[in-house]
């Protein structure tokens, strides 16, 4: 049989839902931010290696 929750119980339920949602949301945002750092790292590494390769090629030409 359906039972009506008291106002107090409603508040408790809402708080728990918010906790779960904000927990997962924060974790997802964290993963997203780390993803952006990952892409930045890949880009930085690629640019640096390319610059180093070009430098070596120039030295070899000389």
């Amino acid at each position: 049989m359906f039972e009506f929750l008291s106002f107090h119980e409603h508040l408790n339920e809402i708080a728990k839902t918010v906790a779960v949602e904000s927990g997962f949301l924060a974790w997802a945002l964290l993963a997203g931010a780390m993803g952006v750092i990952f892409i930045s790292l890949l880009a930085m590494n690629a640019i640096t290696r390319r610059a180093e390769r070009k430098k070596k090629e120039k030295e070899a030409q000389k």
């Binding site: 906790a19 927990g23 974790w27 964290l30 993963a31 780390m34 990952f38």
Partner: peptide
């Protein structure tokens, strides 16, 4: 080894999971 950054993200799971559990007893 840039892929290790995701290990750092996964390793924070305990913060959020324990927060969810603690919210049963404590204010958020």
């Amino acid at each position: 080894k840039p892929w290790l950054i995701f290990v750092g993200a996964a390793g924070q799971g305990g913060i959020f999971l324990s927060m969810m559990l603690a919210s049963i007893f404590f204010p958020l």
